[in-house]
């Protein structure tokens, strides 16, 4: 049995690119865990440590980190990890 791909996004409600990334994944029928940094500001440090930088959105597909709205990189990672 294939293991389920873990997809997580660090985002905030005002962040336009976060909205695009989430909409794109939902367009592909992909579910993800969302960490809203407005709701959970204490998670910002965790996000900065994982991604080694401060900008959002930060998308994590299994162990792969994608910063910003980068469709080709997201597609590549989704394919590589068997999510599409």
């Amino acid at each position: 049995m294939t293991e389920k791909v873990k997809i997580k996004i660090y985002s905030s409600p005002d962040c336009s690119y976060c909205y695009v990334v989430k909409d794109y994944l939902s367009h592909q029928g992909i579910e993800l865990e969302e960490i809203d940094l407005y709701e959970q500001p204490e998670k910002r440090q965790e996000m900065e440590e994982i991604s080694k930088q401060k900008n959002i959105p930060v998308l994590i597909i299994n162990d792969e980190i994608i910063i910003g709205w980068k469709k080709e990189k997201i597609d590549e990672a989704l394919k590589k990890h068997g999510a599409i």
Partner: peptide, 9 residues
Amino acid sequence: YCLTCDEKA
């Protein structure tokens, strides 16, 4: 480059 994304940082 994205104010709405990152100003809170």
